[in-house]
Write a protein that binds this DNA or RNA. Structure first.
Length: 641
DNA sequence: CATGGTTTTACT
DNA sequence: AGTAAAAC
């Protein structure tokens, strides 16, 4: 069982009806009552954007208006999202999401925030650590809230224990599930929010099963259970197949279930849907997916927008200007906050607008450089764009949508964060308070906005003025990363032969068919000897284990796998093995420093207690102002156990 | 009239 | 750079 696509353990954490939970936390009176969160209650009771479970039990769903919900469930409480400047203000939920992310972050840096209430975690190295540290025991009492797809949990555990080496990847999933239990418990402990989790070997599968036992439970999808699960699974349940593509997929191929997708050759799929989609489909039909979990804690863009449907369409310059001002103010506010929190500055702004009614509406967007965070400046530039594109010859408008979003964030200070942490904690050098270093320059044309932090384009960025991490600790930058070493060498030893290829072609059913029946009752004996007719498979598995253990390398015959492995084996200059992605070449130093810090944290976490975790959190954030600890670097290199 | 506001990614 | 799709 040494296949590359079974190496990773991915967790998807999804908050249960998050907006409702946020409101319930704010007003504990609401707990237990049927509740929905609505925005804009003017028209038909407002649009529902979240429904809690008591309300769901009574048939209330999203896609209902507030009025419909009241009809279905007269006792329902409808909480309206706050409004500022005439539009919905979602900041309360963004804050809550950040709270949760801060907890998740203490478990692994390999964290991808997918939305305000969802995040993927690649816990492969955490799992590997537990196995290497002799901390890899699994038991039912650590999996009290865990379901295994297609199998009873306790039974699954027993089989995994009895066939430890044969089902190493399933053991990994169990450990991943234990970690997920810990994560969810910690999230609840620190924030009071409940969430569900999906655990699998990749993001698509983790996402797929996360909701199977919602709320407040978690679900594991072992690779061996995929085949059966897919037989009855509609195509559109799979992420990215939920829309038009999924529909055309099912029409073009004349299929409705995921299981049917594996009847098509990779060649066929590529012919129909292109190289990228075709291979992706071929893989996922077999439960295989290589999309990496990329480390992203903060968003790459910040935007706000508003629709003006039907009769509310904006008809005059004055009204358009008014809403431009409102949007610009919100954007500006959020940008200033982002600047403080994340020390970065957006360089580009995109103005979105639509004219005309629904079907015949024409939407468009224009980009514009962003020189200042001043709301009047933002409004002025945006308005100009909209005027140019939307004003009719008679001076009137018919604008049904307006939006401003900003992107192309540039770090305000490079390499400074991490070095200042070390400077501080090791007292290497005196450091001025952050505030004093922050130059404010008066920017621009329309003047009078000195309170709006200006561009730092020409701020001195002399590398010599910083102390570089690798100057102090060259060994950590130049040598093999500590934590990833074992994983990396494992990936390197992954081999591939015809047998494995065959197993890819014919989705593997062996494990589940041999040891489980569909009801989840035990069908294997208490001995570790498998039934006769399957012995060859076990022998094959052992053979593969031995082969990889001896480090014998065979030629990969499958290009995809080959490429995947090459990525692992020969990282190029700017390929970050930790993130499994390329990072901008100019950021690589900063980036690798980042990972060194994260690794210290990860190692520390594994063997440590919660207070220590709390301390590490400050390291991860590398926010000098929060680092109230006196540890020296050597503290981090104490033996693990 | 009318899910609405966000965010990411891929295509061209 | 601008558009479209997809997801929550």
């Amino acid at each position: 069982m040494n296949m590359a696509y079974l190496e990773r353990v991915v967790i998807l954490i999804d908050m249960d009806c998050f907006y409702c939970q946020v409101e319930e936390k704010l007003d504990p009176n609401l707990k237990g009552k049927p509740l929905a969160v609505v925005q804009y209650n003017q028209w038909r009771g407002g649009g529902i954007i979240a429904v809690n479970y008591p309300a769901r039990d009574r048939g209330v769903t999203r896609f209902m208006r507030g009025e419909d919900a009241k009809e279905k469930c007269p006792e329902i409480v409808l909480v309206k999202v706050p409004e500022i400047r005439g539009k919905a203000d979602l900041s309360r939920y963004r804050e809550a999401g950040k709270e949760v992310a801060d907890v998740l972050q203490t478990f692994t840096p390999l964290l991808e925030r997918a939305s305000v209430d969802e995040a993927y975690l690649d816990v492969t190295t955490l799992v590997a650590n537990r196995m290497n540290n002799g901390n890899g025991q699994i038991s039912i009492d650590k999996l009290q809230n865990t379901f295994i797809m297609g199998c009873d949990t306790e039974h699954f555990i027993n089989v995994v224990k009895e066939n430890a080496e044969f089902s190493e990847c399933n053991l990994k999933l169990c450990l991943g599930a234990i970690i997920a239990e810990e994560i969810r418990a910690e999230v609840f402990k620190q924030t009071g929010y409940r969430c569900s989790a999906g655990i699998a070997h990749n993001k698509i599968l983790a996402k797929l099963v996360c909701g199977v036992h919602k709320p407040n439970k978690q679900t594991v999808l072992p690779h061996d259970a995929v085949h059966e699960y897919f037989q009855n699974l509609p195509l559109n349940k799979v992420r990215s197949l939920g829309g038009k593509f999924g529909k055309s997929l099912s029409e073009d191929l004349g299929i409705t279930k995921m299981g049917e997708l594996s009847n098509f050759s990779e060649k066929q799929l590529i012919e129909k849907f292109g190289k990228k989609n075709g291979s992706w489909l071929y893989d996922i039909a077999r439960g295989i997916n290589y999309d990496p979990v990329v480390t992203r804690l903060i968003s790459k863009s910040i935007g706000c927008c508003k629709r003006f449907p039907g009769r509310t369409a904006l008809q005059t310059h004055d009204v358009v200007q008014h809403w431009m001002n409102e949007l610009a103010e919100e954007i500006s506010e959020r940008l200033e906050k982002d600047l403080e929190e994340n020390r970065r500055r957006a360089k580009q702004m995109t103005i979105n607008f639509a004219q005309g009614v629904n079907k015949e509406s024409i939407s468009s967007s224009r980009t514009h450089p962003l020189h200042s965070y001043s709301p009047t400046r933002i409004a002025k530039d945006s308005l100009e764009v909209v005027k140019r594109h939307c004003q009719k010859p008679d001076g009137s408008y018919n604008v049904t949508f307006l939006g401003i979003s900003v992107s192309n964030f540039q770090e305000e200070k490079k390499l400074k964060d991490i070095t200042s942490f070390f400077k501080k904690s090791m007292a290497i050098q005196e450091e001025k308070p952050v505030e004093e270093q922050q130059l404010v320059e008066d920017d621009d044309d329309i003047g009078n906005h000195s309170i709006y932090s200006a561009s730092t384009e020409d701020l001195e960025e002399d590398p010599k003025s910083y102390i570089y991490f690798e100057d102090i600790y060259p060994e950590f930058v130049s040598s093999q990363p500590i934590e990833s070493y074992q994983l990396t060498s494992k990936l390197r030893s992954v081999s591939k032969d015809k047998q494995e290829l065959e197993m890819r072609r014919q989705p593997s059913r062996s494990f589940f068919n041999k040891y489980f029946d569909s009801t989840g009752t035990a069908s294997c004996s208490s001995t570790s000897t498998p039934p006769d007719e399957k012995e060859s498979d076990v022998e094959q598995a052992k053979f593969e284990l031995t082969e990889s253990a001896t480090g014998v390398k065979r030629k990969a015959t499958d290009n995809k796998i080959l490429q995947y492995l090459q990525k692992c084996e020969e990282p190029n200059e700017n390929y970050c093995e930790e993130c499994k992605r390329n990072v901008p070449i100019e950021d690589i130093l900063h980036h690798s420093d980042y990972h060194v810090a994260k690794k210290l944290q990860a190692e520390f976490n594994e063997s440590s207690l919660k207070e220590e975790r709390q301390v590490n959190r400050n390291i991860i954030k590398v926010k000098p102002k929060k680092s109230a600890n006196n540890r020296s670097i050597s503290d981090f290199f104490k033996p693990n156990n």
